[in-house]
């Protein structure tokens, strides 16, 4: 793949730091780079050389609206959609422990795209899907990526979906990412979603919906970090339709500077089911966080719980780490990193 340094950097950011891509040799950074939150590393310092090699398993790398590298495997078939932009990804029944990487990079200022990726996951499969999008914008026009991912998870299949979003570049144009994730879980299936916004995304509206059949299970782990004047909305609607279906949604976020976040999670219990949502946010500086957890039980057998906590970085936590020899800044970084990990 012939990629610019910025495009390589995006791919390293959005598909790195997860066990699967490490194991599969999906990327190799020049150095063992710590999280931007931990180091406060500048963009310039991070714009060193990035080496990227093709991951194992199926993949499609998309840059500025075009596929720049694709591989299907015996069990995973990636096809271009005919009527709109995006992919149809077919995973054969019984496929075990395989991965699909579908990262997206935008480095052209002013590019606006909506991409529809549909995943058809066969019965009894077990796969990991690594997506994620990064925008490098050094111009004055907004760059926008709307990624609409639909997962049709077959009976007794299990998926792990990892999505990271990242933006950088000093141009005045916005870096805007609006992901929509729809999950349809058939009987006895399971989905684990790890959704993370690392840094640098000016505006995002994240919509996640799920429909669960009997004994299906959904786990969502969301991590959001906003800074500057960024805004983020994270909206969930989870329908527990099947008997003994379960959902566990855990969102942790940090809002710094003048950034704003809204978290709205609605769990609807339409059957005997269990649902839990938890929103935990830390506010720093002059940021604002609005959490709206909602439960809608349509039968007495629906057991639904929500928890929401918003607070500042506690001084006693900082003091504790300072008594162990960290400076105030180091203590704050450590607490933030721990919280988001």
């Amino acid at each position: 793949m012939n990629l610019s340094e910025e495009e390589k950097q995006i791919f390293c950011e959005v598909i790195a730091d997860n066990d699967v891509s490490r194991e599969s040799g999906a990327w190799q950074g020049e150095d063992e780079r710590a999280s931007p939150v931990a180091t406060g590393a500048s963009d310039a310092a991070r714009e060193t050389s990035f080496r990227l090699s093709a991951p194992k398993g199926a993949y499609n790398f998309r840059v500025n609206g075009k596929s720049v590298g694709r591989k299907s495997t015996a069990n995973i078939d990636i096809k271009t959609k005919q009527k709109k932009s995006g992919l149809d990804i077919y995973i054969k029944p019984g496929t075990k422990n395989e991965t699909v990487h579908i990262p997206v990079a935008i480095s052209a200022t002013g590019l606006k795209e909506a991409v529809y990726n549909d995943f058809y996951i066969g019965d009894n499969s077990k796969v990991t899907i690594i997506a994620g999008c990064g925008i490098y914008n050094c111009g004055d026009q907004d760059s926008v990526h709307d990624g609409i991912h639909r997962f049709y998870v077959g009976k007794n299949a299990k998926i792990k979906y990892i999505e990271k979003h990242y933006g950088f570049g000093r141009g005045g144009g916005g870096k805007i990412l609006n992901p929509t994730t729809e999950v349809y879980l058939e009987k006895d299936s399971e989905a684990t979603l790890e959704l993370e916004q690392i840094k640098g995304v000016d505006s995002t509206i994240r919509k996640t919906t799920a429909e669960l059949e009997d004994n299906a299970k959904l786990m969502v782990k969301e991590r959001l970090f906003t800074h500057g004047r960024q805004s983020a909305e994270s909206l969930y609607e989870i329908n527990l339709n099947g008997k003994d279906s379960t959902a566990d949604l855990a969102s942790r976020s940090i809002a710094r500077d003048l950034s704003k976040q809204t978290f709205k999670a609605t769990i609807i219990g339409n059957n005997k089911c269990r649902g839990h949502s938890e929103c935990d946010a830390i506010i720093m500086d002059d940021a604002a966080v609005h959490a709206i957890p909602a439960l809608n039980a349509k039968t007495k057998d629906a057991e639904l719980i929500h928890e929401a906590a918003i607070g500042k970085l506690a001084s006693d936590q900082i003091n504790k780490l300072m008594t162990l020899g960290l400076t105030k800044k180091e203590a704050e970084s450590r607490i933030i990193n721990g919280f988001l990990n």
């Binding site: 935990d280 936590q317 607490i335």
Partner: peptide, 11 residues
Amino acid sequence: SFQQPVKLKGI
């Protein structure tokens, strides 16, 4: 050693 130990989520 603090009288009231703090919780450190994620650590």
